[in-house]
């Protein structure tokens, strides 16, 4: 599935919630619970995503020239939000990740649900994921 298709799928899922804040938070938390466990060795300062109010640890690596993301957060809601980004970007090539706009947070009304400050945190996470992709892209080229 393309990055666009994955984003459209998320937008569709959230539209069903019809702006109900409690249902939305419930759903976001459920998504977070299904995120695979992050290895404890990545739960340190080196892997913290800056700009987030709550803590997010994120690790990225290459698997067959595709980027894999592992992440966790100390808050359940943030973890759910991170899981959405991973769903969109995980398994794509570094170039694809760098090229594509991530527009679904705005479309699902992230400003309304997580407030402006949290959206900045969200933007920081997207930026960090693209930086990971950039760093990993050089590895695929040198490896090739």
């Amino acid at each position: 599935m393309s990055i666009e298709a994955k984003q459209e799928e998320i937008i569709e899922e959230f539209s069903v919630l019809d702006g109900d804040m409690e249902m939305t938070i419930n759903y976001i938390m459920e998504l977070g619970e299904s995120l695979p466990e992050l290895d404890d060795k990545y739960r340190n300062e080196d892997y913290i995503v800056k700009g987030c109010q709550s803590k997010v640890w994120m690790h990225a690596y290459l698997n067959n020239d595709k980027v894999k993301f592992d992440a966790d957060s100390n808050t359940a809601i943030t973890k759910g939000l991170v899981s959405l980004l991973i769903r969109v970007l995980d398994g794509e090539t570094p170039e694809t990740i760098m090229e594509h706009d991530i527009y679904f947070p705005e479309k699902i009304g992230m400003n309304r649900f997580i407030g402006t400050q949290r959206s900045n945190g969200f933007a920081a996470m997207i930026k960090q994921m693209k930086l990971y992709a950039l760093a990993l892209s050089s590895k695929t080229k040198t490896g090739a």
Binding site: M21, E22, S54, N74, T75, I77, I114
Partner: peptide, 21 residues
């Protein structure tokens, strides 16, 4: 076992304004 931020977000969803942090 519950982060203050999660509590604050849930309370807001229920119309209750508190401060967390």
């Amino acid at each position: 076992g519950v982060h203050p931020f999660d509590i604050g977000m849930w309370l807001d969803a229920k119309g209750i304004a508190v401060r967390t942090g």
